[in-house]
Design a protein around this nucleic acid. Structure first.
Lengths: 137, 137
DNA sequence: TTATATATCTACTAAATCTATAGGATAATT
DNA sequence: AATTATCCTATAGATTTAGTAGATATATAA
């Protein structure tokens, strides 16, 4: 299942993209409109900031804003920060590879085989989907 | 992340398919060869039995055996039993659909949009992959 | 300079889920 | 009757998730 963290994070980014302004938008506003616990959202936006496409400003009139255009924000980046590795097992992960401790041989492992296909398939979706694609036209 | 339950279940099925016999194979044998806790595997195989492609026999000489040919056992069925719904959110689930309580409108929901793509993509993989495809040739 | 509004950061707690184990019940074989 | 193996239910420990609390840092405005 998709975590609430990811769900909320996506909704928040979508909200920012739809507001379509360079002005910072307060967490409180996003939380209210998207029905998210404000404190929880604080943590989520904080972790998204590390991606480089999300900026923030403190103090009165502060908040969060998109640095890049939504058409340049790929879901690969978003999902990796929010949900973690795209691969379902670490032995097929591109960015977080780790050998399975119980599996003696990867090429002959059925789990490895199946999850490789799943990873490729998901990766294609995430690579070809940008924040802009999730906004309603 | 893929659950251990699913991982073990897949390995067990693969083991059965590779043994390539109609004779029942004891849980103990599978558990030993695949490095799985026997008691845990009991539960897993039990739940897989409901799919119809896995049979069991009690008593001496008993165990589990595949009823169908591995080329006729699709991953959609396996994954749904072991890992649960293929969709990452219930609002895009084919078999377990449920409306999100916090989301007023599905067509305009960005999470819905993205997860629809992901579901379709995963579904294609699982539908086109059969147990037989996971065995090393 | 002071008050206010906002993000930042760390720590914590409660609930849910996952992993595994325990022990007996049931059924088939010898 | 004894043995062997699956079947079934319950439970316990570990981990993860979701959410909360409270103090700190920083920017704005009066």
């Amino acid at each position: 299942m998709l975590s609430k963290k990811t769900k909320y994070g996506l909704k928040a980014l979508t909200y920012l993209a739809r507001r379509n302004t360079k002005e910072p938008i307060a967490i409180a506003e996003i939380a209210k409109h998207e029905n998210i616990s404000q404190k929880f959202l604080e943590n989520i936006l904080l972790s998204l900031r590390s991606t480089g496409f999300l900026g923030s400003k403190k103090g009165k009139g502060g908040g969060y804003y998109l640095i890049k255009d939504p058409s340049e924000i790929p879901m690969t980046t978003v999902m990796r920060v929010l949900e973690g590795p795209i691969a379902m097992v670490s032995c097929v992960s591109l960015n977080f590879y780790e050998k399975c401790d119980d599996c003696p041989d990867e090429p002959s492992c059925s789990v490895h085989r199946l999850m490789l296909k799943v990873r490729d398939s998901n990766l294609e979706v995430y690579r070809n989907t940008f924040l802009a694609d999730l906004l309603t036209e």
